[in-house]
């Protein structure tokens, strides 16, 4: 993230501080081998259903429907979360949570999550493979439908 203005710089360093705090206090709870963060069985079960609840806006396993390619967020391109870096996801979620990052909806969701859940979600989505998820094509309603 490139931050140049004063307040944003403050926000940025507050994220770094929070990331530091989480890294020291929570990361040990996540197994860490060969540069890959692994979940405990309980964490894996907890995060899979929680992360799946994000799918209504961000797609199955973080692969949001994209109009054409993996473009920037727009009305038909909700952000794809799959395969983004853990640090990027973490800093955005923490920014939404502490109010330093403007949001329409995510400030409300992120405040309902624990720091551990935010860490689990960032790790989970960073580990998913990004794909080009097309829109599902609708079809004509048949006469016999109730």
């Amino acid at each position: 993230m490139q931050q140049t203005t004063g307040p944003m710089k403050t926000a940025s360093s507050s994220w770094l501080l929070l990331i530091g705090l989480i890294t020291s206090s929570l990361w040990p709870a996540l197994g860490h081998a060969d540069g890959v963060f692994a979940f405990t069985a309980e964490q894996a079960t907890h995060v899979r259903a929680l992360a799946a609840s994000c799918a209504a806006c961000h797609g199955t396993l973080g692969n949001a429907v994209v109009k054409e390619g993996n473009g920037p967020p727009s009305e038909e391109n909700n952000p794809v979360l799959a395969g983004r870096s853990r640090e990027d996801l973490l800093s955005k979620l923490l920014g939404f949570r502490d109010g330093s990052r403007k949001a329409t909806i995510m400030h409300q969701h992120s405040k309902g999550l624990s720091l551990e859940e935010i860490a689990l979600l960032a790790t989970h989505f960073s580990q998913q493979k990004p794909i080009n998820q097309p829109r599902l094509q609708p079809q004509a309603l048949k006469a016999e439908h109730g």
Binding site: A56, E75, T104
Partner: peptide
Amino acid sequence: YAQAWANNIWA
């Protein structure tokens, strides 16, 4: 966003 919500929950 609401249209995107629909597209994503349908998929």
